[in-house]
Design a protein around this nucleic acid. Structure first.
Lengths: 236, 236
DNA sequence: TTTCTTTAGTGTATTTGAAACACTTAGGTT
DNA sequence: AACCTAAGTGTTTCAAATACACTAAAGAAA
């Protein structure tokens, strides 16, 4: 058994997708792994891969995400680096690593990015050159490869912490959205309920949420006014 | 000129030290560099070094900090990874890199940790096996090596963001402290003034700040009551 | 021992933001 | 015309943030 002499660096992307049915995360299936030797089911994992030798971290996250899921122009933000020396050395992950890596025993440190997309504005089933890609409801995420459950938790914490302070909710909504959609998003991400009238009072103080001269269409109830996000009005 | 084929990973520690004279950061001088070829002054930098092949990130930060500054038992927390492909390739940094690295042209990604110590409880002039170690007032920090000014700014942001929410102010104070010291710390770190009575009202609600049966000694004014931090009482 | 200097320590009134709460409206469907 | 559904809207109550000025205790100086 070879002694590891260098270490590798990867990026992993925790891409959250949102629509009226809830908050989801983008996972890829390890289709190409033959887990015969340990008789395991194919596992899911976060989209991620080794960075190239001359590539910046954020550029790597964008490239890897595009290569694995065809997603482009996604808001991405670094949140944490994971470097446990044994994070890719569990038995469950060996077969897959051998099938895709030239140095499967290599230690890999990874830098986590979280991404945000609106499922209405982006193709919810991005094609992949190898392996399936799926949006999984956050509640239904099972055991993932490597330490990806921990990374997912870390991304969720970062999202919750930054949702209110960093004006990122709009990355998860369609360009035109209703106040009810905005409220539901807050409720789903922060896992608590808000009072409708108080919530709207607060939104009306945000000058970067601008009402449009347009209403919701095709709904079987009173149509809601549409709003959009104006990044130029960030005076508050 | 050799093509780089692997990349390296380092940790850099931004250790903040606090006492009644203010907030400082621990820097080391590049004494061993002979900058003759570009005629530059010796530069200061954050304590940091490459991680070992089997070492966790936090363990690396602890080890490197100890090796370079003899500091031990310091609160350390990861805050950001810096991976610009050119971050160690500026002219100003070449001479020093050649004097200490076997592969000075190597790309290095670094993971930043911030550390917190009380200058009263820790030796403020830790000895180093090579190169001087100094506490520098935050206002007096000049140009540092590599991207270390940017890393320092990132650490300061992290400290400001976490001071109130993460109960870390106590890492910067002596075990026994006065409320005035606590208030000054908040004012220095958050760069704003607080009202004395309101500040104390808020502290009295924090059950983890416990009054001691002890008073300040050797001061030429009314001695203040001492308090300490009880990590078991974190119910709020 | 008196006076001076310095920082510790304390309470109330005002303003602001957060929280609680229920009915009417507009559109599509039956 | 009646019904269903989510949109939209104000006021009251309570809690927290803010603003503000004097007395107390110790050591130093006279």
């Amino acid at each position: 058994m070879l002694k590891n002499e260098t270490l590798h660096l990867s990026v992993d992307c925790v891409v959250f997708g949102y629509d009226d049915s809830g908050l989801k995360v983008l996972l890829i299936n390890q289709k190409e792994a033959n887990n015969e030797e340990v008789g395991q089911n194919p596992m899911s994992q976060l989209p991620g891969d080794l960075i190239l030798i001359d590539e910046g971290l954020e550029a790597a996250a964008e490239r890897v995400l595009f290569e694995l899921t065809q997603l482009k122009g996604v808001y991405l933000k670094q949140f944490h680096a994971y470097g446990d020396p044994n994070r890719v050395k569990q038995l469950k992950d060996r077969a897959w690593l051998r099938s895709v890596r030239t140095q499967p025993e290599q230690r890999v440190i990874t830098v986590g990015y979280f991404g945000l997309v609106s499922l209405q504005d982006h193709d919810p089933q991005p094609a992949s050159f190898a392996g399936g890609v799926e949006w999984i409801d956050l509640q239904n995420v099972g055991p993932l490869a490597f330490d990806h459950n921990e990374i997912l938790d870390g991304a969720m914490d970062a999202l919750q912490n930054q949702l209110e302070s960093h004006h990122i909710s709009f990355e998860l909504l369609p360009k035109k959205f209703t106040l009810s959609q905005l409220q539901s998003l807050y409720e789903v991400v922060l896992e608590k309920k808000f009072d409708k009238r108080n919530f709207r009072k607060n939104v009306k103080r945000m000058s970067h949420v601008v009402p449009l001269d347009e209403k919701q269409q095709g709904v079987m109830h009173k149509p809601a006014q549409l709003f959009s996000f104006n990044p130029d009005h960030l005076d508050d």
